[in-house]
Amino acid sequence: MGGATAGRPRGFSVAWRRHKEALVLIAPGALVLVLAFLFPVGHILVLGFLGEEGVSLEHYAAFFVDDYYLGVVGRTFRLAFVITACCLLVGFPLAYLAARVGPRARILLILLVILPLMTSVVIRTFGWLVVLGPGGVLSDFLQAIGLTGAPTGLLHTETGIVIAMVQVLLPFMVLTVLGVLQRQSADLEEAARTMGASFWRVLRTVTLPLSVPGIVSGSLIVFALSISSFITPTLVGGVRLPVLAGSIYQAATGSFDWNFAGVQSTLLLLTALAVIIPYASLMRRRTSWQTGAAPGAGHE
């Protein structure tokens, strides 16, 4: 029996020490996550199932029998889809431009896109109130070119919400797509041009398919942020156009009905996942070439 008999085997003690170090390192983060996220979210989810006496589905029943709330859910998702589509439509060309211009112009474009992020969402939304409101810049402009006779505006319309939200969320789309586009070699596009493809055809057959991963992540971020945002929709849309997040806020802080807020939160989470998970997995299949899972691979 020599020096190797000092209690536990050496390999184990090394593994244990590494383990301990890792535990110590993640402990603060894990604690914050449990206390400030998992616990309150879990609590909210549970609240939805708590009635006067014990477990009950009465709050869910109240939600589903009321057309008003179904309308709120419908509006929330409709808006999120339109906002995501608009962000993609505006954001992709912008990201493409930023990826293909020189480094100096790129910095300028990126600055232009992220500059709004430097101010609070509340301030930007008040900005939109000034632009979109009756007697605002937009209204004056429409009157000046003779499109409308009286002061008008897009305040309290879904169009107004979309415009304001697209401006708020555009940076997330642009930066995500830009990241993917910059990693694409410009050789691919030039090669496609020499092979007889016009600019638009190159965009359709080469650039866009290769950008799918960025488009997917960008859309998911924008979509998730849209369905859960409530400051901009509430301020621009007003009380007549409530969205789910605003309605949750209203239930919790207006009528102090925490159980009902829990129901709406649970439904928001579930419906969001119901959209996001299939979308992500569908897109992952479409980009299978990245992982090297080729159809028909293996015969040589």
């Binding site: 070699s185 050789d187 691919l188 030039e190 496609a192 080469v206 290769l210 980009t287 070439w289 990245q290």
Partner: peptide, 8 residues
């Protein structure tokens, strides 16, 4: 760089 299209 060969410029092969990775998705085809």
């Amino acid at each position: 760089s060969y410029a092969l299209f990775p998705h085809m």
